[in-house]
Amino acid sequence: MYFNLCTLVLKIAILTLSFPLALPAQTSPQTLLIYTSQKEEFVKPIFDRFSQETGIKIDFISDKGPVLIERLKSEGKNTRADLLLTVDAGNLWFAQSQGLFQPIQSAALEKNIPTQFRDPQNHWFGFTQRARTILYNSNKVKPEQLSTYEALADSQWKGRLCLRTSKNVYNQSLVAVMLGQQPESQVAATVKGWVSNLAAEPFADDTKMIEAIIAGQCDVGIANHYYLARMIKAKGPQPVGVFWANQKTSGVHVNIFGAGVVKASPKAKSATLFLEWLASDRGQTTLAENNLEFPIRPKIAVSKIIEPWGNFKADRTALIRVGELQSKAVQLMDKVGYR
């Protein structure tokens, strides 16, 4: 009887282990393992196209940026990852500050990627831009009423503003950029003004916030442009306008989708080839179409969905500052009660 029990346990264990395992097997020289913070549906088509063109296969593990960085830290020199592909310059900066990247010498990357979108020592590079700007209900607000992020702290927006939670990295980066340009007291006053103008509790994600703008719960909000683009792609035109913030001052806050080659990777050559492909015409076009973001190279056409929104002046603050000031930004938001 007891032998039957053991046999059953053994059978279950073997059956379970025979499923495809979560950990990819040891990668071959012609395979790159990428840790990415992007969801599978956004990165898989890009990886597939690269593999078709170069014959280099890509395995990937998808998770949140800070989590992947912690994973790389804990794996140390034993990591099997070759690249970290993540959103937000703060994440890339932090990974670099922890010594997780190796410098890459590539004329193609230096030529194609503007200096403000890459690390000065070429540890990481940005490949698309994502603008965090002001969205408004086009039935209730006229673009002339809008100007800057700071102006959203004015009393005229009392009970009309919606924001995503401060626990999200995008708002942390926005405030970090402001901290790099203005005195802390001024930034604190702005963020405090936003909090007092809120029409609803901060939202868990940008999509819900845009839905609230459409439904009329609030009139304006701050969101990444591609959330609206995805909504338009899925549901058609929406009564929401895009206003490029701070055009007469510092420019709209842009962040990046970027990557760096992991320090412990022995496949730096193949990894660099992948980065160069992302910066090439084919790679940039694929990224623009697939992710609905702005290519890092101005000459590459943007998606038809976001084309009508026009050009904008981007904030030229070096993105490396975003990472350096992120912790300070989190502390400031906590202090003024921005949840």
């Binding site: 969801k39 998808s62 998770d63 949140k64």
Partner: peptide, 21 residues
Amino acid sequence: LRPAGFHNLMTRSYDFISEGF
């Protein structure tokens, strides 16, 4: 524990929900 490569159904669900998917 995701830095150590852990996942279950709940974290998969969380990943999508936290991004509004």
